[in-house]
Simulated assay, not measured.
Amino acid sequence: MNEGETTMISFVILTWNSEKYIGNCIESILSNVEVQNEVIVVDNGSHDATREIVRSFDRVVLVELDSNMGTTASRNMGIESSSERSKYICILDSDTVVSKGTFEKLVDIFEKNEGIGLAAPYMFHTDGMRQNSFKKFPTLFQKLSKLSPVGFMSRWGENDESYENWDSDRDEDFFDVDYAISACWLVNRDALDRVGLFDENIFYSPEDVDLCLRIWKGGYRVVAVPGTKVVHHYQRLSRKNPLGRIAIEHFKGLIYYFNKHGYYISRRKLYRRLGR
């Protein structure tokens, strides 16, 4: 980055034993993003080859942590390490690959439309199927239903948080969503300055729901942008080990989130507060 050059996007990537993915993720940014950018990787105490892979890229800043500090404190460190000249912050998971033209389109949406705080691209599985990455604010019953071993209850929980025809093509340039999963966000730095960074009372999840809700409460919009593409391996760590630390932290985070925002059963009360 040359002196005086404007950094448009600061990519903040969190890693934890991510040797399988991180090289491809960084390479996709360097190859496919034409907007001026910087790449910051915050490593949560990996004990595989993750750090060596990151160091092999000259342009990438590596922040090394001694242990796994979760998703919120680590990402905040990355954001705080970013250049003040960057207008946008990209929160990006290490198991993603970004496509050419996607970030140019996201930046264009911001530049042409006032009031957008966060824009998220369409996410795809590695087999090309679209991922359900834009969702309605959760409720306690909906979350418990998703965990149910009873098939129809689990399906109801999935459907209740999903937008109708979420996997259909849409013609508009962008559309409002309650929240987007934080595998890939582009966030207006001004919005972060107003509403604050990730809430470090949450270790792992639902930090994405909380920040999107605070962006809405701050008077900004959260939008999804058709015509964009990011491939996401979608590891779903809490589902893989429902009794492990990540799953327990997820449950604790949900209870904290509902207490913080003062709703449990119905999201209608929340929508009324937001004037939506």
Rank of each mutant, 00 (worst) to 15 (best):
Y179D: 02
K136I: 10
W166K: 14
G117S: 02
D167Q: 12
E164H: 03
T126D: 01
F110P: 07
D169K: 13
D160Q: 15
E172C: 14
S162I: 08
T139W: 00
N165D: 14
K112G: 05
V177W: 10
N165G: 14
N113D: 01
L118I: 15
F175A: 06
T139L: 02
L140Y: 11
L118A: 08
V150L: 11
S148Y: 14
V150H: 08
S168E: 14
D167I: 03
D160S: 15
N165S: 15
F175V: 05
G128A: 07
L140M: 04
M123H: 04
F174Y: 13
P138T: 02
S168P: 07
G117I: 11
Q131H: 13
P121M: 04
W156G: 04
G157I: 08
F137Y: 14
P121E: 01
F141W: 09
Y122F: 12
M129K: 07
D127Y: 03
N165Y: 13
S154R: 15
R130G: 02
D167R: 09
M129L: 09
G157C: 09
L147Y: 06
K136A: 07
S168Y: 14
E158I: 12
E111H: 09
D160A: 15
D160W: 15
Y163S: 07
P149T: 09
G151F: 15
T126E: 08
Y179E: 02
K135S: 05
T126S: 09
R170L: 12
W156F: 15
N132T: 03
N132M: 11
D127L: 06
F134I: 02
A119C: 11
D171C: 06
S145G: 12
S154M: 13
S162N: 08
W156R: 10
F174N: 03
E114P: 08
L140W: 05
L140H: 03
I109P: 01
G157M: 06
G128Q: 07
D127C: 05
E158F: 13
S154Y: 12
A119V: 14
Q142W: 08
D108N: 10
K136H: 11
E164A: 14
S162W: 09
S145T: 12
E111W: 02
W156E: 04
F174K: 02
F152D: 03
D167N: 13
Q131L: 12
G115A: 09
G128F: 11
D127V: 08
H125G: 05
N113Q: 00
P121L: 02
D169C: 10
Q131D: 10
D178G: 00
V177R: 10
I109E: 00
N159M: 13
E114A: 02
E172V: 15
F137W: 13
I109H: 00
N113R: 01
P138C: 06
F110Q: 11
P149C: 06
R130L: 09
A119K: 13
N113A: 03
P138G: 04
K136S: 03
F134R: 04
F152T: 10
E164V: 09
S162D: 09
D127K: 04
T139M: 01
S133D: 01
Y122V: 06
G115F: 07
S154Q: 13
